[in-house]
Amino acid sequence: MPLLEVDDLHVSFGTPDGVVRAVRGVSFSVDRGRTLGIVGESGSGKSVATQTIVGLTRGARVSGRATLDGENLLGADPDTLRRIRGAKIGMIFQDPLSSLHPYYKVGWQIVEMIRAHERGTSKSAARQRAVDLLDAVGIPSPRTRIDNYPHEFSGGMRQRVMIAMAMALNPAVLVADEPTTALDVTVQAQVLDVMRDLQREFGTAIILITHDLGVVADMADEVVVMYGGQVMERAERRDLFYRHHHPYTEGLLNSLPTSGRRGKLTPIAGTPPSMITPPPGCPFEPRCVHAMDRCREKPPTVEIPGGGPHTSACWLPVERAQRTKAEAS
């Protein structure tokens, strides 16, 4: 059984404009020491899905199933979820400057995290651990930096602090929600390296939410492509890049610049659908160049043979995946 398993997750919010159906039947899972990439553009429901399983989407209507190590998450009472947050599932977010409290020293924020879950740990012991953690994520002279405020760090260093804090209690799962989006490209690679090193050392499962396929290519073992609150395609990393089946995945890959390839990038035409009145069938149908009448019905989940576990929510023939492989080679 996978470490974290999410099955048929639905999340919706009541708003003055109507019910926003942010996540509609999403399933994914991740195992110890593995990295799951969740890819999708803004509003695809990728952040909502992960925040819901730890109880961070307040006021949402939720259905489906989510378990961590066999323990049920969705029905759990708030106090149980609170104990899981931080201790078993650590989280880091997009903008490390706004994600750290501007009024508190970084050491204080890490110590608070440790002592919130380990009542018995003394302040000095927690502080020593905070120094070690800052050292582990590669912050120079952690013994003095621990008493600095977030604004006294650079962007990359701040994200390292966030990682140190999220990893403080050695959680089984680390949810990284666009961890490198706000960082310089050169710093991005360093931050990803820090995450990879920690994963190797502690066997942490990582859920990496991003819209950057480059980051996915660098980090993920398995990839879930989300669009309009649904999973479009789910595949091992290699299969996703070389044997993708879904036209949306193809669109994402075509809008990615690659070295050596000439010519203009091809963006996906149109805009994402309204989540209040989503299209009845495939959410990508209104923008899809291959759209046909059938696409207005509920899309199937097709197994794509000839590689790792691979599914796609599209009516197009499965041979299509082989074709893209032929093109790629």
């Binding site: 899981i84 706004s98 750290l100 409290h101 508190y104 608070e112």
Partner: peptide, 23 residues
Amino acid sequence: DYIRTARSKGLSERRVVLRHGLR
């Protein structure tokens, strides 16, 4: 965002509101 971080750390709601929010 830092309130979301405080919640993701597993702090009690009381602490999130008073220590992180009210500050």
